[in-house]
Write a protein that binds this DNA or RNA. Structure first.
Ligand code: SF4
Ligand code: SF4
Lengths: 132, 132
DNA sequence: GATATTAAAGAGTCTTGAAGTCTATTATTG
DNA sequence: CAATAATAGACTTCAAGACTCTTTAATATC
């Protein structure tokens, strides 16, 4: 049970995009270089973020990726959901009704984590960086 | 990113052992039957719990598995750690020091989940069941 | 409009780990 | 000793993660 590397790449890319506060898009080569990952693979990951509207992409010369309006409110959970999917961490094949005590515990604990990830935005990291 | 099925089996087995409050050990065949999993495979999982001292095993006729003294304080997290291991959900290959903001967020959120799983014991489920 | 640039899409590869089987071996009871 | 039951280890199968390679589509600049 681990987060996929793709999640790691997505988070780092978002941070990087947020940090370079130019409104010019950044090419995937540059983004990929920093994380030592292949451009085509990172591109595939970023496309997911594009489809969710978190990132804008521009083809052609001087194209690349950039954050969309309202990016300041994008949370860690948003990004994680986009990459990992939204299904629960704990799944049992059966459905023994809503009384199932095990599932109740597992889902509640999971919810605690997500609650925290929902609070934290990429923008928060920038503030941290400038204040320290 | 999912819990393994082994974790599911381990939790259910612990609950089952706790529920059958006889002090006689229960054979793996019976435990496996309920969860529709092969006895040998479940046995492999239970051996992990045995090694952690949560469960006692008895070979030979009338043998099987039973909870050990102090089982009432075994938490969900204890069981999960035993099966899934204790390493963090988020791992990056690099180590950019303790200032890394991404890791900080990820670990804190994870800690929230574990906090909840640490509070919940198998024994709690029994109480729930008898009161409802 | 041609050409260079860049993202998107899709097929295909490689590796790893989960999930489980099979077959001994060891321990215990009676 | 014979039956029962856990333990151990080797082995197999399958699915998903983590990519690569190649082609196609969009766009800007000359
Ligand atoms: S008891 Fe709950 S967790 Fe277990 S199989 Fe039934 S529904 Fe699933
Ligand atoms: S910034 Fe943090 S999470 Fe990212 S690679 Fe460095 S140490 Fe890892």
């Amino acid at each position: 049970m681990k987060y996929s590397k793709a999640t790691n790449y997505a988070l780092h890319t978002m941070l990087h995009l947020a940090l370079s506060n130019s409104n010019k898009p950044i090419g995937v080569q540059i983004l990929a270089q920093q994380q030592k990952v292949s451009p085509t693979y990172l591109s595939k990951i970023l496309t997911k973020l594009v489809k969710e509207g978190m990132v804008a992409s521009a083809s052609g010369a001087n194209g690349g990726y950039s954050l969309t309006k309202g990016w300041e409110s994008i949370s860690f959970l948003d990004i994680i959901y986009t990459i990992e999917g939204k299904s629960s961490l704990f799944d049992c094949d059966f459905d023994h009704g809503s009384h199932c005590p095990i599932q109740k515990v597992m889902l509640r604990s999971e919810e605690k984590m997500e609650e925290e990830l929902r609070k934290q935005t990429i923008a928060d990291l920038i503030l941290d960086r400038t204040t320290t």
